[in-house]
Design a protein around this nucleic acid. Structure first.
Lengths: 230, 230
DNA sequence: TATTATAAGTGTTATTTTTACACTCAAAAT
DNA sequence: ATTTTGAGTGTAAAAATAACACTTATAATA
């Protein structure tokens, strides 16, 4: 018995995860088929309850790992949903997180346990509760954030071509970008480095691989400059 | 007994409010003296627990009104703090909200009940738990948001002079702004209207009052344009 | 009533950033 | 040898931003 127990009520607190991936030029979302009532069998975000002995960040990482097998990936709190009737079974407050993962690293076996499937963004089915609203909010956040911070790279393999990253930005912002302007600006920021290796998959000529240079980015930030990319 | 009760644990969920005001050219914060253990007598954000029968937004409005007497003011969810040990008495998950109020409308009598006082931003005392971190986060959010949305007006009286709003922006962003450029840009957005009335308080000559024109702003947004102010 | 003091108000130019736009190159496949 | 395909590259116009200083209206004062 502690100080607050006499006086105040407790609530269920859950986590829901919006998991973004990028594949075949499309931004995608990892959804699961809900295995328990209410709404059993419906498409849903991955989620789970926050235990009384874990922080909400820890809970979010635990739940993400359970579905994807991934531990150290980009995961950021999005928003907390606290309407009374949002979960049809009981009063549950849900803290939504969004994750950006490199789709190649995703552990399919684990996903299948939950009936998980990747959906292209323009193909998201109706989801349980307020999950569609969560997705929309996450998407808006992703759009804004990729302008101001170099988090897009989280969705790509370590080595990527300029064409790939342009396609990623086009998918996120859903609009075509001028190739020359894009490259000029991205390279001028000096946070990606060209490797000596070429990708020969997608063209005969081959395209240079680049990688994100975290050190240079950190220096840039320390100097008070900012990544700004629109 | 409902579906989730057998299996999952509940947690205390609280609200904490970062309440901004603007007075005498300074951005200010409304803080209270904590009236109960733990940390009784220390400076703190206004807060309270979320009941099992109210939404978190409702709880935030209720708590804000209790301190300020104000109902329909700008109030937005900031971030949810969920570390295990953040409250020294028990495990409490706290959803932080920030409010922007016109300091003249604030009900002082009600504030005094809670031992409330306004603090200039560069004069914030050490606060209980993680409240100083909440304040910093709210400030960063306010800075970003005032660039992208016309929420600064929430901190001003309905009628304000161009000098006042410039002082507000200077206080928020903590840097001087060129007077001519500021006016040119703000007026060119066409979301404030000049009144026929002058403020004679702060100068002999008098300065025209302006008011924010929500209708024009809404039209601007509908047309796909955006308020962008740096 | 003339002078002074104070904040309000106002335009132009240089610099920087953003946008628009089309051809050559390298290499594999035929 | 020719064709096909995506990779790679520069310049000029337009727009946005930044820098900068004097005049005006009025109340207070001499």
């Amino acid at each position: 018995m502690t100080l607050y127990n006499q006086v105040h009520e407790k609530n269920f607190v859950a986590i829901d995860s919006i998991i973004f991936g990028f594949d075949q030029g499309k931004l995608k979302l990892l959804l699961i088929k809900r295995k328990m009532p209410p709404m059993e069998g419906h498409w849903s975000l991955m989620g789970g309850f926050v235990g009384s002995g874990e922080s909400i960040d820890d809970a979010a990482y635990r739940i993400l790992e359970e579905l994807t097998g991934l531990k150290s990936v980009f995961l950021e709190q999005l928003y907390t949903y606290g309407d009374l009737k949002r979960d049809s079974a009981d009063r549950v407050i849900s803290v939504a997180y969004y994750a950006l993962i490199n789709i190649n690293n995703y552990d399919q076996a684990q996903g299948l346990n939950h009936g998980a499937r990747w959906f292209a963004l323009d193909d998201i089915p109706p989801l349980v509760f307020d999950h569609n609203a969560m997705v929309m909010k996450a998407l808006r956040r992703l759009r804004r954030k990729t302008i101001v911070q170099p988090i897009g790279f989280e969705l790509l393999p370590e080595k990527f071509t300029l064409t790939k990253i342009q396609q990623l930005y086009e998918a996120i912002h859903q609009q075509p970008i001028d190739k020359r302007n894009f490259r000029k600006k991205l390279l001028s920021m000096g946070v990606i480095t060209r490797l000596d290796e070429k990708d020969k998959e997608s063209s005969k000529r081959g395209a240079f691989y680049y990688k994100f240079d975290k050190k240079k980015y950190d220096t840039l930030v320390e100097e008070g400059n900012s990544f700004e990319f629109k």
